[in-house]
């Protein structure tokens, strides 16, 4: 009779497990992580443990708490938007049921003329060639010519773009390092248990002192 009962409970609960409608993620922590690339801000949203937060509300505020824009994450938990204005931004992710995460982008990360500059990748080819010509062909008559049609702003723009290109892998690596989506480490876990053992010791100590007195 007893065996039968246990079996029955087990079977029913297993059945319920598989029938359970499990569409919602319900982890304990949600992270949003954002970085700037050119004139776009990219953000990535994940639950602790690496599951992406799909279709979650992302709100972008400036530092005065004024909402700049909002949107929803796609199937990969990504959400990107063009930089609305040159200001530090607070990106708040609301994944529902009390889950919220945020990420701040300081104003320094947002480049100088990014908002005006729309040429992006496609425009990169041309200035490169221009700058290469005077360097490789060192014959004098061409030099003044080259400097004639390269204004100060052009050079600044080229340098900026080139730097962006060269720095991109480095920045990406840094972003990975700062990525908060990492799981709790073993030392965190052991540390926590150690604290609890310490508290138990404290409790036992207090008790033993009370008994002596």
């Amino acid at each position: 009779m007893k065996r039968l009962f246990i079996k029955w409970v087990g079977l029913v609960s297993l059945g319920l497990l598989f029938l359970a409608p499990g569409k919602m993620a319900f982890a304990h922590k949600v992270n949003v992580f954002a970085w700037v690339d050119g004139n776009t801000v990219y953000s990535e949203s994940k639950f602790n443990g690496g599951r992406v937060a799909k279709d979650a509300l992302v709100e972008v505020f400036d530092m005065n708490g004024e909402k700049l824009l909002e949107g929803r994450t796609d199937d990969k938990g990504n959400f990107s938007f063009a930089i609305p204005e040159k200001t530090a931004m607070r990106i708040v992710l609301k994944a529902g049921m009390g889950h919220q995460g945020e990420w701040t982008i300081p104003v320094e990360e947002i480049g100088g003329d990014v908002i005006a500059d729309e040429t992006g990748e496609s425009g990169m080819g041309t200035p490169e060639k221009i700058i290469e010509t005077p360097v490789s062909e060192a014959d004098t008559p061409k030099m003044p010519n080259a400097f004639n049609y390269l204004s100060k702003e052009d050079v600044a723009g080229i340098v900026e773009r080139e730097l962006d290109k060269k720095m991109k892998p480095v920045v990406e690596k840094l972003n990975r390092l700062l990525d908060p989506h990492k799981k709790p480490s073993v030392s965190d876990i052991i540390g926590g248990i150690g604290y609890i053992i310490g508290l138990v010791g404290l409790g036992a100590y207090i008790k033993s002192r009370k008994e002596k007195i």
Partner: peptide
Amino acid sequence: FVASLINVRIGVSSA
């Protein structure tokens, strides 16, 4: 303290 690290994955959901 440790139990919340044990994720139960059922289908697409995890708790």
